[in-house]
């Protein structure tokens, strides 16, 4: 983390709640990092605030020292995203700070690069389990001849985003097409979930799927720091919303749905 101090923040707090992994990371511009995570539960609402308090205590600072905020905006678990984004918005509002929202897919890809290194992670596909036997996925190309070290952590230059939900078979077919241009490292809890389908495919590297199954707060913090350094403007707290990528399930659990009779005429007629 050379030279982040020159890039516009001193203390960055990152919140992660998009998957079963819940936590916070606090990154200082001198490179010091504190991270607290919990894995496996669905108690995002109970775990996040204590994690924030812990990373502040570990870093010997208070929330008043925080001058940059980042949050995973999804896609991911709806209620998890709401806890993370609502927390980030209230922190941003009360601290007078904007928020850098980052998609879970970008964080996963950045995590793949951190763990796999520039060679193995030259081409990455991040896959988030969308449940209902569907996934969200995006493909990334890192490095290459023109990709100098530091900027590789910004997986935005070359990204092929599948914004719609994919079935596991559609994902497999897409990957089969991508490997025609060279091997692809596949990460994320969606890759773990459908490992049996993906692992046997030629050119598909699933060896790091378990290690990079969930976006991590530390990776989010480093990625957001890079983006701030590269000139990304934070979003106003009031404008940050989760990236659900799915319409709301409009069920109210009542037996009768549509009115059986036509509405009465408007008043006066």
């Amino acid at each position: 983390m050379d030279d982040v101090g020159a890039s516009g923040f001193v203390t960055l707090l990152a919140l992660e709640t998009a998957t079963d992994l819940v936590g916070a990371a606090l990154l200082r511009s001198d490179g010091a990092l504190a991270e607290r995570t919990h894995v496996g539960g669905r108690a995002h609402g109970e775990l996040l605030a204590p994690a924030i308090e812990e990373v502040c205590a570990l870093s010997g600072c208070t929330l008043a020292d925080v001058d940059a905020l980042a949050v995973d905006v999804g896609p991911g678990l709806f209620t998890g995203l709401r806890v993370g984004v609502a927390t980030a918005k209230a922190l941003g509002q009360s601290l007078g700070l904007g928020i850098v929202g980052v998609t879970s897919l970008d964080i996963l890809a950045a995590g793949a690069l951190e763990v796999g290194g520039p060679e193995r992670a030259a081409r990455v596909v991040a896959v988030v389990d969308a449940r209902r036997r569907e996934v969200f996925a995006a493909a990334y190309e890192f490095g290459g001849p023109s990709g100098p070290g530091g900027d590789q952590a910004v997986p935005a230059a070359v990204r092929h985003d599948r914004s719609e939900a994919l079935s596991p078979d559609e994902l497999a077919t897409w990957l089969d097409g991508l490997v025609a241009d060279g091997p692809v490292l596949v990460v994320g809890n969606g890759a773990v979930r459908y490992l049996d389908l993906l692992a046997p495919r030629p050119g598909v590297d699933t060896g790091l799927a378990g290690e990079v199954a969930a976006p991590s707060p530390a990776t989010l913090a480093r990625l957001a720091a890079r983006r701030i350094g590269a000139g990304t403007e934070p979003t106003a707290a009031g404008d940050v919303v989760p990236d659900y990528r799915r319409h709301a399930d409009a069920r109210i659990n009542w037996e009768e749905r549509a009115p059986q009779r036509t509405p009465p005429p408007a008043d006066g007629t």
């Binding site: 609402g45 605030a49 929330l63 709401r82 806890v83 609502a86 927390t87 209230a90």
Partner: peptide
């Protein structure tokens, strides 16, 4: 609301 309240309480 609970997430918001906790954040404000901390800050």
């Amino acid at each position: 609301g609970v997430a918001e309240a906790k954040a404000l309480s901390m800050v």
